[in-house]
Design a protein around this nucleic acid. Structure first.
Lengths: 165, 165
DNA sequence: TATTGTTATACTCTATAACTATA
DNA sequence: TATAGTTATAGAGTATAACAATA
């Protein structure tokens, strides 16, 4: 497979009328892969760094976001969703309950289960944090040209495919 | 600023002849920011997950890569580069030295300093790991259309700008 | 004295193993 | 017995504080 990675990103030189790509120089897939992976990782790190002023750890916020997104769920369902063991998630949930962001209630149907729900405070925090995280990148996207925004919009769809494949 | 985020990604509906954007539907900058941030973060997580089969922790590999990239350097220089305290970096370096990936030598000029260098084994590991990480995304990029690759190449440049701003 | 590196110690987050309550 | 959750305990990785060696 290593050989086929030398395939160019485009089968022929871009025609002079191509209106979009600002860097039409010929590159191999291997070069593109390397550059794109690094840019993706660095940007993700940069965004994460920006949101580090949060009082919640990333694991706590991720768990809160999962319950917010998926609705009321049990501890084990949440631990599976977050790829973490039940004892670990239990500790995370304890912190969220103590912070008043999540409610822990026994299940009426099955006495062994607990049902986790996001409190109003938790919902507000999720929405505000999300908006704050989006804002950092939004202020920068706002300064791009419409063509660059189109490129990012198209790239977003491609990146979703890549992440799911 | 919140109001201006409702600006569309393009000033006018894309003409029917637009050859590139596969999803030309009208979106606000706020929507694009949210979608793009999520896609970027998920893809970065997916790539990181793929490379988790490494015997080094991410902090160890990051430190090794820094010495590889920047050349021989002292402990405190490395700890600053990696945004970690000297005691933490000391522990990380101990692991790398024990694994035979990094060499620790006293400085001839200044007896207080130690100079860290990457061993041949360490260099090989960095190169192989890098290639392996690139390969995961390269196999997927190879399946894209030339137009999609162009989009990713253009997006890569934009993402570099975003990360550095 | 100031700087460089190291050791001592503690805190957080994760894990596995053992335990309790319920089905 | 099996399952859901919790508690006990341990192992990374990080930090601050204290110390040793050198400039």
């Amino acid at each position: 497979m290593s050989e086929s990675l030398t395939a160019p990103t485009s089968p022929a030189p871009a025609p002079a009328s191509a209106p979009v790509a600002p860097h039409p120089k010929r590159r191999t897939v291997a070069e593109l892969s390397h550059d794109f992976r690094l840019a993706n990782g660095r940007l993700a790190r940069r965004v994460r760094q920006e949101q580090a002023d949060n009082e919640l750890t990333s694991g706590q916020f991720s768990a809160l976001g999962a319950v917010f997104r998926l609705g009321p769920m049990t501890l084990s369902a949440l631990s599976e969703e977050e790829r973490v063991t039940p004892p670990s998630m239990n500790r995370t949930v304890n912190a969220l309950v103590e912070a008043g962001l999540v409610n822990r209630a026994g299940s009426a149907e099955d006495g062994r289960k607990v049902v986790l729900t996001v409190t109003d405070t938790g919902m507000t925090l999720v929405r505000e944090t999300r908006r704050r995280r989006d804002d950092w990148i939004a202020t920068r996207i706002l300064k791009l040209t419409p063509e660059q925004r189109q490129t990012l919009a198209a790239a977003t769809e491609i990146m979703k495919e890549l992440a799911n494949s």
